[in-house]
């Protein structure tokens, strides 16, 4: 995790161009420039800036009592509980501070993230559920009817799903279901989970808007799950215990569902974990096209305005989620497959 933080910091700090200047835009004057530089710590050498960054992110951090210093414990920056202080330095326990957005005046990155991340999360989870259910089902069908036309059709569709760029499928789906078939589907081309009603008063949830983005986002994982499920099920069918089950005279239904499928699920679960995090990233395109108010759309906006703290924060949070999910999956894996032991 430390490595990720380091890589991200240095990647974004070797940027050509002066971020302080970018914030002020055209109407700059040197005094303002100096103030901003000081506020964000840009006047310090890069190694000091790096230490500041780590200090901001760390749960336990050190702060100066001098109001002039960058690390001064100001209440509108940090939500902290003081632990103890030595001399001029206070040690505190705090929530990681991701700094402020450059372009949205004074808005904290953590606020931006808490506003948008849940939306993306809902979208990704729905997409994964769609991909899992449909993918496992189609994978089983494909394996059971191996080499028939049914299997071949599913295979072709799955290759198709893997090679379509997500922004292209998003455009096609928005166009086809949201525009051409709008009369029948009543789906909008764009829309977010929460929308103001016509009077701009109450905010209400529109589940309807979730359908198209989630389906589009689910296409790729779906294609992968189908392939994996099919291959792993075919492998399981050749195992001895399936033959034993057959010899015992179990019904085909019991063999497939109780013996084969559960064992064939392992690689699928691992793959899904990998996919979940990249879906948070892949949501960039889908959210952008459907106007879904999530992290991905925020990243695109931040990219266009070069709002570095927001991009850094988003990349960081996705990477950390990725690590956490992987740990969780390792645990699920042990439960699914008793042969594997946690290290």
């Amino acid at each position: 995790m430390f490595g990720v933080v380091t890589v991200i910091f240095f990647l974004f700090n070797v940027l050509p161009g002066d971020p302080a200047q970018m914030m002020l835009g055209q109407n700059e004057d040197s005094e303002q420039l100096a103030i901003i530089k000081k506020k964000y710590g840009f006047d310090k050498p890069i190694s000091t800036q790096y230490l500041y960054y780590l200090n901001d992110l760390s749960l336990v951090s050190f702060h100066s009592k001098n109001a002039e210093d960058y690390t001064f414990l100001s209440p509108n920056k940090y939500a902290a509980t003081e632990l103890f202080s030595i001399g001029n330095t206070t040690t505190v326990l705090k929530f990681p501070y991701l700094r402020e957005s450059f372009t949205k005046q004074g808005k904290k990155v953590s606020e931006v993230l808490t506003e948008t991340l849940p939306n993306t999360f809902v979208l990704a989870v729905t997409a994964i559920i769609i991909a899992m259910l449909l993918g496992v089902f189609l994978g089983i069908v494909s394996a059971l009817y191996k080499d028939t036309w049914l299997d071949k059709t599913i295979q072709i569709l799955s290759t198709f799903g893997m090679s379509i760029p997500s922004f292209f499928s998003a455009i096609l789906f928005a166009w086809f279901f949201g525009y051409i078939l709008h009369r029948y589907t009543h789906l909008e081309m764009t829309g977010s989970l929460y929308e103001m009603d016509d009077f701009g008063e109450a905010i209400h949830i529109k589940w309807k808007n979730l359908i198209l983005p989630a389906v589009v986002l689910g296409i790729r994982p779906l294609a992968v799950v189908i392939q994996l499920m099919r291959n792993s099920l075919l492998e399981v069918f050749n195992q001895d215990y399936i033959r034993t089950a057959r010899a015992k005279g179990l019904s085909e239904y019991q063999i497939i569902w109780k013996h084969a499928v559960k064992n064939a699920m392992n690689p699928v679960v691992t793959a899904i974990s990998g996919w979940f995090a990249s879906m948070l990233a892949g949501a960039v395109f889908v959210e952008y096209i459907f106007g879904w108010n999530g992290l991905g759309k925020e990243i695109v906006n931040a990219l266009n305005t070069l709002d570095l703290p927001v991009i850094m924060g988003s990349v960081l949070i996705i990477a950390i989620l990725f690590i956490i999910i992987n740990i969780l999956v390792d645990i699920i894996y042990v439960w699914l497959d008793p042969k594997v032991k946690l290290d």
Binding site: G3, A281, I318, F322
Partner: peptide, 21 residues
């Protein structure tokens, strides 16, 4: 360690970061 660090940042975001740099 390098592989794991690179791997835990999604490809697209890493590419975005590098192109920005």
């Amino acid at each position: 360690w390098v592989i794991n660090v690179t791997w835990s940042i999604p490809t697209l975001l890493l590419v975005i970061a590098i192109t920005l740099a």
